[in-house]
Nucleic acid binder design. Structure first.
Lengths: 160, 160
DNA sequence: GGAAAATATTTGCACAAGCAGGTAAGCGGC
DNA sequence: GCCGCTTACCTGCTTGTGCAAATATTTTCC
């Protein structure tokens, strides 16, 4: 079992580390947000992405990419949040196939309430991860990242 | 919307990047492995983890941690793989609560067949991600990781 | 030695995800 | 102006996941 070259093994190891850290954080956030605000991580992500558009609305597909979700999953996700009054859905004049979503005041409110918990949990989990020998290097690398300004991550760069 | 401190914002950004990259890789691997070998990423991960134990068996809970899965999900996952004859499940004498799993020859065979695709897909996706400005730094960081030897990542350090 | 607590795994249930298929709206050639 | 093709979103179905409760086995503490 050793004919696959070293580079591949390094990549695989990196991927395992990445997955492990992701799983750790994801689970922690999931539990915290669920318990305190009845929000899943994806739901929070969507609200947060919308808030970052600040006054702008997003199409379903942008949302789908931002949340790394299929479009069908996005439909239901938006429906859930809409049913809770956290965001509004309305079609826009210039292309009536498209549907725009926008945070409601309640949505902004809930996001503001959830953000501290989110950030705290994230910090705590990263600190915890930094104690695990396998994860520590990645945690450090993550911290040293971002020479970039507060640029719009993902693919949600433009309004249309 | 700007009272949360900078450190938190940096962490949040790092987390978004991590999640984005993870999603990208995960989706790509999922599709590739599913299409060619009817394996999900977690299933592959479990087979791979088992193979790394080389001759050893693992308990359900070790497996659960290795795959970042709940124990119930692990039960069903192992059942699926067992039904396909890829691994065996048997209780061990010293603690009859515990259940050990071990790869069958077929399991090793399938893993060997799937690994090249896995590695290739991983490499391709990483290359692709390196072209995205938001992800590139993390990809590089990931590559420069692993000064560590081929150490057992995750929590699966010992045999018991 | 035996009851009580702890540990390892499995099962019932509800929920969210992806895929495939369906409908509505724009776009292009004629 | 009409027909075909593409795009954007929604819905039915199947599957995997987590939580909570059930079961079996070991360990602990009198």
């Amino acid at each position: 079992m050793g004919i696959h070259d070293d580079a591949a093994e390094i990549r695989a190891g990196g991927w395992r580390t990445l997955a492990a850290l992701h799983g750790l954080i994801d689970t922690a956030l999931e539990k915290a947000l669920q318990a305190e605000h009845r929000l899943s991580v994806v739901e929070y992500t969507v609200l947060e992405a919308l808030s970052r558009q600040d006054g702008w609305h997003m199409r379903m597909q942008q949302l789908a990419r931002a949340a790394a979700l299929s479009s069908s999953a996005t439909t239901r996700l938006v429906s859930r949040l809409e049913d809770r009054g956290l965001l509004g859905r309305y079609l826009c004049a210039d292309d009536r196939r498209g549907i725009y979503t926008e945070l409601t005041p309640q949505g902004r409110e809930l996001l503001a309430a959830a953000r501290p918990l989110h950030d705290t949990t994230l910090e705590a989990t990263l600190t915890e991860a930094a104690d695990l020998p396998e994860l520590a290097p990645l945690v450090r690398a993550l911290h040293d990242l971002e020479p970039t300004p507060a640029a719009p991550a993902k693919g949600l760069t433009a309004k249309v």
